[in-house]
Each structure stands twice: as structure tokens, then as C-alpha cells.
Simulated assay, not measured.
Amino acid sequence: MNQKNHNLNPHEPKLGSFIALYKSLIKNRQLILHMTKRDVISRYRGSIIGLAWSFFNPIFMLSVYTIVFSLIFKAKWSVDEGENKIQFALILFTGMIVLNLFSEVLNRAPGLILSNVNYVKKVVFPLEILPVVSLCVALFHASVSFLVLIIAFVVFNGYFNLSTFLIPIIILPFLILLLGISWTLASLGVFIRDVGQTIGLLTTLLMFLSPVFYPISAVPEKLKPFILANPMTFIIEQLRLSVIWDKPINWTGLSIYLIIAILFLFVGFAWFQKTRKGFADVI
């Protein structure tokens, strides 16, 4: 009996394997769904239109981008004369969706354990799902933004690119990478409190080192390696190829990205499981 209870204790170090990860996600899927739903709803609790804000916020931002960049700055992404006035806004918005997803997950990660001390004290609570819940919440808002992007594209262009259906496939490796990094940062944030501030600065730096506001073709050759090393760059470019330009995506590059992301996932999960036994002592 004691051995059984010991094995169920989530605060004991576990083998950080894919089998352990799979079992945890399957076993706690209902809890993950419940906590995700609660987190999303809590953000809009007390407001008049409630959850509808998750839909109106990206609409407002896309409207601002359209007015500022297409009407005021009259910006163009390329020299193509066939590019309509709001094309720049749609291209920019695509990059912003990825940036917001990246920033929300990573900025929250270092404080996930620290902001849930009550869960750390509960032996039966699976702490490893906290980064998963954070990712699901960010993914919910990103999904709504993608919906707004697709609707806006159809409204302003009058047609729909079938390659848009590739969005889930393109974004999946990025989500896997974010989850692996999130587990690592959630653990480090417990032992090194400066991690939260450092990540805030890093995400700001990566915002300017990603092709959100400019095309890669505009980057000087000496700086291109830094831009291409940014984990957001490849995903942003592939999303634009599928949603905006209806061009074939780089399947080889996406496969390599997926392999690297799975490696980060494994390392992050293993690190979290190995260090979690010290959370209660530090907190």
C-alpha cells in the first residue's frame, strides 16, 4: 500500500520519458481542460461582454494595423504593384499572432510554480500540467486570432486559400518547442527568481529579431543568421506562405524543426521532473 502511494506522489522524481509524459497528459486531460477553461474565463470575468473580448481584441488590433500601416504609412511588404492596401496589415498580423503566442507562454512560464504554491503543497496534484495549461490558454487566444485573420483575408481579398488548412500542422512543432521551454523555465523560475525578468527582456529582443515588422529580404546578410536562429522566424514565414500567398511550405525544414522541438520537449520535461522534488523546499 505504501509503495502504491509512493508511486502516485507527483512530487517524487519520475522518469522524464515520453511514456511518463504521455501517461500524465492522458490521465490528467480532464483537469487540463478544466483549468484551461477556468483560466480563460477568469480573464474576462466581470466584463460586460465577457468571453467575446477574446474575439473583439484581435479584430481591434487588426483594424489598428490596417489604418496605421496601409492608410497612414502606406506601407508595402514588397514591390509588387498588385499588393492591395491592407495586405501589409494581414502579413503583419500573421507575425503578431506567433509573437503573442510565444511571448505569453514564455513570460508566464517562470512564475507558474511560484504563483501556484498551494498546488506545490498538495501531494496529489500533477505539477507538470501547469505549463500545459498555460500553453492551452495561449493557444486558445491564438486560435481566435487565426480565425479573425482568415475571415479578414476572405473579406478583403474575396477568396480563400486551401493551404490555410495547414495552419495546425505548421504551428504544432512550435507548440511542442514552447512546451519544452516552458517546463524548463517553470523549474528555473523557482530556484532563480531573476529568470522572469530576463525572459521579459529576451522576448522583447526576439520581437525585433524576428520578421514580424519586416521581410527577411530586407535584413542585411550579416544579420540574417541571427534572424534565422530565432525560433519564431521559420514558423512566421511558413504561415505567411500558406495563409497569405498560398505557396508550398518547406516540409523538410518543418520536419527538422519538429525533431528539434521534440528534443526540447524531452529535455524540458526530464529537467522539470528531476528538479520538482526541490520546489517545496525552496518555496
Rank of each mutant, 00 (worst) to 15 (best):
I113M: 15
L114R: 15
L114E: 14
S115R: 15
N116Q: 11
N116L: 06
V117S: 13
V117F: 08
V117G: 11
V117A: 11
N118R: 08
Y119E: 14
Y119F: 15
Y119R: 13
Y119A: 12
Y119M: 12
K121W: 05
K122H: 12
V123D: 12
V124R: 12
F125D: 12
F125K: 12
L127M: 13
I129R: 05
P131T: 02
P131R: 05
S134A: 13
L135M: 04
L135Q: 02
C136M: 13
A138T: 00
L139T: 15
L139Q: 08
F140H: 10
H141K: 05
A142M: 00
A142K: 00
S143R: 07
S143P: 09
V144E: 09
S145P: 02
F146Y: 09
L147D: 06
V148Q: 04
L149I: 01
L149D: 01
I150R: 05
I150G: 03
I151D: 04
I151N: 04
A152S: 11
A152E: 06
F153V: 06
V155E: 11
V155S: 09
F156H: 09
G158D: 12
Y159M: 12
Y159D: 09
Y159S: 15
F160W: 11
F160N: 04
N161S: 02
N161G: 01
T164N: 02
T164C: 07
I167Q: 06
I167Y: 07
P168L: 11
I171L: 11
I171V: 11
L172A: 15
P173N: 04
P173A: 03
P173T: 07
F174M: 02
I176F: 05
L177F: 13
L177V: 03
L179E: 08
G180W: 05
I181R: 01
W183P: 03
T184G: 13
A186R: 11
A186D: 10
S187I: 08
L188C: 07
G189E: 10
V190T: 15
V190R: 13
F191N: 08
F191R: 14
R193T: 15
R193V: 14
D194N: 13
V195H: 09
V195Q: 08
G196L: 14
G196Y: 13
Q197R: 14
T198Y: 12
I199D: 09
I199Q: 04
G200S: 07
L202E: 03
T203K: 00
T204N: 14
T204I: 10
L205G: 01
L206V: 00
L206M: 01
L206K: 00
L206R: 00
L206I: 00
M207E: 01
M207T: 09
F208D: 01
L209G: 03
S210Q: 01
S210F: 00
P211Y: 00
P211S: 00
V212K: 02
F213E: 04
P215L: 00
P215C: 00
